[in-house]
């Protein structure tokens, strides 16, 4: 090989190493800040405490200057909004995928697919704007009509809008999975006189089940990590509640509120954001790994 070729190859190798390095860097940088946080606040307090008020005192001798960092309300809020989102996205996405691959005429498909692709391409900040300007007031007035007390930054509004955002994602993943179901199974079912619904329920869904679970796991991971919609439409105060009509906060909202603005880098307040980020990273990482393994196994099973 010529020297220039050698250099090119070395560059390619170096880039690959660098791309792996990113993961290592994420883990190391976020992990070291998290460790620094845990030298201020005990992990037991963080993972099991139910009181979250990270304000640091202006004067050092002020009462309650350390703030309290019990993250349970935040985790509950995060899980609740993600659960509402998935309660919207899973049926919508799955039914849409089934309808498109089983019932839809080619003309309808060509009309419907762009709609979902556009939904997938809209930046999340636009969803956040829509949640604030249109959807949250709508939910509020619906609540007033039914005589329910709805917070202006209710978990329901943020969760439903997030669900709509995740729907096209679930749809395209489960459509891939459904199209990978062996045709012989489907034709066999039709040949036995089964209706399309019976084929979907007793043949396609069982055959595609693990793939669908993988899609749902990836959807949950997106919901947990989604930031802009909740920053704009969910609340700031960490309240331990399971009522979707009240305002709850999420890990991503807290990271943003703790880190936006000027701050010194050593206070437990800023380090708490890294601890939350690390927890978020671990959660989404595990979900993604699980989804990948499930989908891989599903492919081998159908190959």
């Amino acid at each position: 090989m010529r020297t220039s070729d050698r250099i090119i190859k070395a560059f390619l190798q170096l880039s690959t190493v660098l791309s792996v390095l990113i993961t290592v860097l994420i883990v190391l940088s976020v992990f070291s800040e998290t460790m620094r946080f845990f030298s201020h606040v005990s992990p037991l307090n963080f993972f099991f405490g139910t009181e979250w008020s990270p304000q640091t005192a202006i004067r050092a001798d002020q009462a309650g200057s350390s703030g309290s960092f019990g993250a349970v309300p935040i985790f509950v809020g995060t899980v609740m909004i993600a659960a509402i989102a998935m309660a919207v996205a899973t049926p919508l996405g799955l039914l849409a995928a089934i309808y498109l691959s089983v019932y839809a005429t080619p003309r309808f498909r060509n009309a419907a697919k762009p709609v979902l692709e556009i939904l997938a391409g809209i930046p999340t900040v636009v969803y956040g704007y829509f949640a604030v300007v249109a959807f949250a007031p709508l939910i509020r007035s619906a609540g007033d009509y039914l005589g329910l007390e709805v917070a202006s930054e209710s978990a329901l509004a943020a969760g439903v809008v997030m669900g709509i955002m995740i729907t096209p994602f679930i749809m395209s993943l489960s459509e891939d999975v459904i199209s990978a179901v062996p045709k012989s199974l489907i034709y066999g079912s039709f040949a036995m006189g089964a209706t399309p619904y019976e084929t979907v329920r007793h043949v396609i869904i069982p055959a595609a089940f693990s793939g669908i679970i993988g899609a749902v796991l990836l959807g949950i991971s997106r919901g947990i990590g989604e930031t802009m919609i909740v920053v704009m439409a969910a609340g700031l105060s960490a309240k331990l509640t399971v009522n979707p009509l009240e305002a709850v906060t999420t890990a991503t909202v807290q990271i943003v509120t703790l880190l936006v603005g000027d701050h010194e880098f050593d206070s437990p307040k800023t380090l708490a954001a890294f601890a939350l980020g690390f927890a978020l990273f671990i959660m989404t990482f595990l979900l993604n790994m699980a989804a990948q393994i499930i989908v891989k196994r599903y492919r081998q099973q159908n190959a």
Binding site: I22, T23, L25, I26, G225, T227, F274, L280, F281, T284
Partner: peptide, 21 residues
């Protein structure tokens, strides 16, 4: 696997990385 996972890491984590590094 690592690269596939990176594509699914929440974008806010990259903000933390940028801030600290």
């Amino acid at each position: 696997i690592n690269i596939n996972n990176l594509a699914a890491v929440p974008s806010i984590i990259y903000g933390l990385l940028g801030l600290s590094i």
